[in-house]
């Protein structure tokens, strides 16, 4: 059988699919003479276009290869590139001959969840990618002192960068307290440290710039299911940039062992009920409760915002058996849970 749609270019074997019997394809069609001329002209133009396109296609990977070689040449030295690109500096800490610079997305330490990155540079400005860091934040309120939930400082893979997060329970100045920071640095076999450096943890406001926004809450189990009085800290992480539609929502739950020890809890859950108090407590459907995500090492769920504005994320803290530890359902007269966070956009 002859393929009907095969293309034949007169005098151009480099390109086409020549038909077995060598007839130009338009001869099958038995077109009028003028039509044949037209088709011939069209096919020729097309062939020229395809040839050019092919040449271009050959050139393109070559160009990409050259560009790749170029890049390799620039980075082959033992110089480590600046790992802090795209981040904003919070502040520097001087530890011996090393400068430890703290960075994050906002350039500030804030009440609630604050992500922090550290870059360590020696006196010559060379970034160190084999350091070890540990830190201890402490709030001094005169009568008492306490730390806050936090993670270890760990290395970011493939970067001369170290990361951690804090869930600041209070902001600087709250209850006349001040935050102090201890930081220990180990490079090779040498360990050095600084202590009691005052840091500034900012309060978090709603868009009006004056009303405090709730992003972290300390609770103690006080329900019939669990009246142990165990204390937990629930911290909102996401949404960072809320939008109308579906948003990832995530949070940490830490159990407070003592004023300085907070252990991440992995098997709990947070029931979610987002509401708009200004809209007769309007809610949205298809939200997903927050459950432990082993990948991201925190609780993850989905919150749906049907419009912009002020939203209250009402939560119920549940243990691994589904028993309520803190918070209450929203219904009728009960307009909010005792455990909630605020999002306004």
């Amino acid at each position: 059988m002859k393929p009907v749609y095969s293309i034949f270019i007169e005098g151009g074997d480099s390109f086409g699919y020549r038909e077995a019997n060598g007839f130009p394809y338009y001869q099958h069609l038995n077109l009028p003479l003028t039509m044949r001329t037209f088709v011939r002209a069209f096919v020729r133009t097309f062939a020229i276009f395809v040839k050019k396109a092919r040449r271009l296609a050959i050139l393109m990977p070559a160009a990409a290869l050259l560009a790749a070689c170029d890049k390799n040449r620039n980075t082959d030295a033992d110089e480590i590139p600046d790992p802090t690109e795209g981040l904003t500096k919070v502040r520097d800490f001087q530890i011996g001959r090393y400068t430890v610079s703290a960075y994050n997305e906002t350039g500030e330490l804030r009440l609630g969840y604050t992500k922090l990155y550290f870059a360590v540079a020696d006196a010559s400005g060379k970034f160190i990618d084999s350091a070890a860091l540990s830190a201890f934040p402490e709030m001094d309120m005169g009568m008492m002192k306490h730390s806050t939930p936090r993670s270890e400082i760990t290395k970011v893979p493939d970067k001369a960068l170290y990361e951690t997060y804090y869930a600041f329970l209070m902001y600087s100045g709250q209850g006349n307290g001040k935050w102090y920071y201890d930081l220990k640095l180990t490079v090779g076999s040498v360990t050095d440290s600084i202590s009691d450096v005052e840091i500034d943890v900012k309060n978090v406001f709603r868009p009006d710039g004056k009303t405090e926004r709730r992003v972290i809450q300390s609770v103690s189990a006080d329900t019939s299911a669990d009246a142990s009085g165990k204390r937990y800290v629930v911290t909102l992480v996401e949404p960072v940039a809320p939008k109308v539609g579906s948003n990832d929502v995530s949070a940490y739950i830490h159990e407070r062992k003592d004023a300085n020890t907070y252990i991440p809890v992995e098997r709990f859950a947070l029931k979610l009920d987002p509401r708009m108090p200004s809209m007769e407590n309007h809610s949205s459907p298809n939200n997903a409760d927050l459950t432990w995500s082993a990948d991201e090492q925190r609780y993850k769920g989905t919150v749906n915002f049907s419009m912009t504005g002020y939203w209250k994320l009402n939560l119920i803290l549940q243990n691994e058996h589904g028993a309520t530890l803190y918070g209450n359902p929203v219904s009728g007269e009960v307009e909010a849970s005792s455990l909630y966070f605020e999002v306004e956009f």
Partner: peptide, 11 residues
């Protein structure tokens, strides 16, 4: 919203 500190709701 009646609360002037809240931002307008848009959809």
């Amino acid at each position: 919203p009646s609360n002037p500190n809240e931002i307008p709701m848009f959809m």
